[in-house]
Nucleic acid binder design. Structure first.
Lengths: 234, 234
DNA sequence: TCTCCCATTTGATCTTGATCAACAAGGCGC
DNA sequence: GCGCCTTGTTGATCAAGATCAAATGGGAGA
């Protein structure tokens, strides 16, 4: 649990959330926050807790998941550099999801009360927060329709296309995180994820371990029926 | 298509979204908007369109739905008095859902550009918008976990408990809208919704047509496994 | 009041994905 | 290098929900 005051974090300042705000205000936020390193597989917070920090994943990998009585389900896999659980912080409400690190991670912890206070003073930050929440809302709308309208292999195909697009559109890339987590994110069992990869072989996807190659983007796209509305520009 | 300038709409002014803003600014928003009456089953807007108006349902019933190639799915049933599609308006992005009236409805149409302009000028409105979006985001998180973790009869049970709570906690109430729409909202077929009502008979729910009576709230709650986090206060 | 129409319900069967079981394949410590 | 433990894959069966088909029933209009 190494604590350290923040020095210069240009990547954080470049985040859409903090980009447009007043420099002095940003400095105030950052100097009131700490950058902390967490080992893999560590629970960062639990569902139901009062939101005490806004998190910004600087480096590593974090899983957000919700718990039922019987089993958990992965809601989101957070890659750097991204903030998360903004909604709970804004409204000073309990987390709806738990979080754990999937890899050793560097996370900026912004005290929720500080965040709320600065938001009230800095209009640019408030506007950025508003935009961020609207984008998050739209992501969730897409995730829900995905779950309701597509079947499992289609969901996987869709995920691979999006994931590839988010990482520079390369046709070859590596999955982030374990397949079991991906399966849970996509709302299926690990067994069925395997079978879904099998199905996608016939639709332009070559997979060996975590290495994925999209050999026929058109075919995959046709199979997984992309959203009618293109992804939001961020 | 009856257009009318708005006169006094205290219920709209009382909405969380508009409640705290400057009176003159609110007047500006309202006088730039129209209150319009729509017949039932009319499409209000289609997925993919640029968001041109923020909607506030004053009276009636509206369905928001997303379309796949094969079938549609209901995303939300909007009851008065509530605003909707705020996220698309804020970010000036295309709608992710289509909307249709389920009953004859009176809807306040606020031009999106006007809304965005006033938000920039009125901090209280911006803050209210931010809160609203955060709540909407949390609703979607709940909806997604609901879909991923509960099976169909449990989803129905959960819906009935929430619906009852939202309508003053009465143990007897009427469903809003047709059952086919409810089925789609809950991510099942109308046939299975019928069967789900059958299942719930053994868990404290009496249904005759659209009239529902929750005879044993404890049993129903135990069966449908409520969220670990209680519903957000609005 | 009587029909007709359409939403809903009920029943039978089919499909998808979950579960259970066993096996393969790496990666890591000793 | 060797075994061991975790992760992923494959196969067989099971359960939930979808689909197809047909019957019921309630309400609006004649």
């Amino acid at each position: 649990m190494t604590f350290m005051r923040i020095g210069e974090k240009p990547e954080i300042a470049r985040l859409p959330l903090f980009r447009d705000m007043d420099d002095a205000m940003r400095e105030r936020v950052l100097s009131g926050s700490f950058l902390q390193v967490f080992p893999p597989q560590l629970t960062l917070f639990e569902i139901g807790q009062r939101a005490d920090f806004l998190h910004v994943l600087v480096d590593g990998l974090v899983e957000l998941y919700a718990a039922g009585d019987v089993r958990d389900t992965t809601m989101r896999i957070v890659e750097p550099v991204t903030s998360y659980i903004l909604a709970a912080v804004i409204n000073d409400m309990p987390y709806l999801m738990s979080a754990r690190t999937l890899a050793s991670s560097r996370i900026l912890l912004v005290p929720a009360a500080l965040m709320r206070e600065v938001i009230k003073r800095d209009t640019a930050l408030m506007q950025a927060t508003m935009h961020e929440l609207a984008l998050g809302y739209r992501d969730m709308v897409r995730a829900l329709t995905d779950m309701k309208l597509r079947q499992s292999a289609e969901r996987l195909g869709h995920y691979l296309l999006e994931h590839s697009a988010r990482h520079g559109g390369k046709q070859e890339f590596e999955l982030s995180g374990e397949k079991r987590v991906l399966a849970s994110l996509l709302g299926m069992t690990p067994e069925n994820l395997s079978r879904a990869f099998g199905t996608l072989k016939a639709h332009g996807v070559a997979a060996r371990g975590a290495k994925i190659r999209i050999e026929d983007r058109t075919a995959l796209s046709a199979f997984s029926r992309p959203d009618p509305v293109p992804p939001d520009q961020r």
